[in-house]
């Protein structure tokens, strides 16, 4: 029981429940099936991004270029599918977006691994590089006529239910992408040597290298993985919006990082779980969506996100400081 109380996930789940009850009392529309499916849909894109960020944070780095990678992959994929004759299945689209994302992620990884540069500044630079390239040389107009396959994919549902008024609400198929990605990332982190190596290098880089973990290879994997997840997230976003807007997604970075940190990942590395990240994403999405349900003007949204980041990191820093002092490290 005491162990349970010490886990951030427990408090997050509790907070989510309390928040849900509170908002539900203020506006019963919160617990409607339509709104819950809406929350799932909104958390898909953010969740895919967040899983990538989680892995980077555990390894002791940070990546702020994932949104630019997402926008790049989604826009380039849509353009390529419209000009080349590759068939119009959604699978091709996702594979292509994943591949574009992978190459951009590996670009980050190469810079970080080869030159051993600070990750924040490398990804700050590459974010501007990717976005600048996309908008200056690929295009700035919104693609409205997405390939048929992507449209069909966006209409797929996992589970559908008719409402009394005749309309139907459904859980979008893309939510499955988030679930599968979460399970995969969780498996890699917990059950493979690679995952343990990522935790190790975040805890202490020198010790991890001495223990025989191949740091550079791991870094390539980490930033490549962020790239793939971002590419898939970008395409999922395009399917959801039924258009590819090159100006979308960028600006989401801080919310995603906030969600992951809220989920208990430490920005100095070595700590973080998939479950915590998923809960963190759900919490941020719920807060953002519910400000509207609660009639709070949208310009307060930034104030609320800022306060949430500060409160959650403050509490994490405070409790971890106490724990360290307990063992005599601080």
């Amino acid at each position: 029981m005491r162990r349970l109380l010490q886990r951030q996930e427990f408090w997050l789940a509790l907070l989510l429940l309390v928040l849900g009850t509170g908002i539900g009392l203020a506006n019963p529309a919160f617990w409607s099936l339509a709104n819950l499916f809406d929350l799932c849909q909104s958390s898909t894109v953010m969740g895919l991004f967040a899983l990538g960020v989680l892995v980077v944070l555990i390894s002791g780095g940070i990546d702020v270029s994932f949104a630019a990678i997402g926008a790049f992959s989604m826009y380039v994929t849509s353009k390529v599918l419209l000009t080349l004759d590759l068939g119009d299945s959604a699978t091709t689209a996702f594979l292509l977006a994943g591949a574009v994302g992978l190459s951009l992620g590996l670009f980050n990884g190469l810079f970080i691994a080869l030159f051993r540069l600070p990750t924040l500044i490398v990804t700050l630079g590459s974010a501007s590089l990717f976005r600048g390239f996309l908008l200056a040389f690929v295009g700035t107009t919104i693609v409205n006529n997405l390939p048929e396959g992507m449209i069909r994919f966006s209409k797929l549902t996992l589970w559908e239910r008719a409402l009394p008024d005749g309309t139907a609400v459904g859980l979008p198929f893309s939510f499955l992408l988030f679930v599968v990605a979460a399970l995969l990332v969780g498996f890699v982190l917990r059950r493979t040597m690679l995952g343990r190596g990522i935790y190790a290098m975040g805890g202490n880089l020198v010790a991890a290298a001495r223990a025989g973990f191949r740091i550079r290879r791991q870094q390539l994997f980490i930033y490549g993985l962020v790239g793939v997840l971002s590419g898939v997230a970008g395409l999922a976003h395009a399917c959801m919006m039924r258009n590819a807007n090159p100006f979308d997604l960028v600006g989401l970075e801080l919310n995603v990082i906030a969600a992951v940190v809220l989920g208990g990942a430490s920005i100095t590395g070595g700590r973080g779980t998939v479950l915590g990240t998923v809960l963190g994403v759900l919490l941020i999405v719920t807060i953002n969506n519910s400000l509207i349900l609660l009639d709070i003007p949208s310009y307060w949204q930034k104030v609320v996100t800022g306060l949430v980041i500060l409160a959650s990191t403050g509490i994490t820093a405070h409790t971890s400081g106490q724990r360290l002092r307990g063992v005599g490290l601080c």
């Binding site: 924040l120 801080l254 906030a258 100095t268 949204q301 104030v303 609320v304 800022g306 306060l307 405070h318």
Partner: peptide
């Protein structure tokens, strides 16, 4: 409070901009 600088200033960046937004409604 011993929050890492990146996170602390990320938070205040949002918070302060939010306050400015709320003051002027944009």
């Amino acid at each position: 409070l011993r929050i890492t600088p990146i996170l602390a200033t990320l938070g205040t960046m949002q918070l302060l901009m939010g306050i400015a937004f709320a003051l002027t409604k944009g």
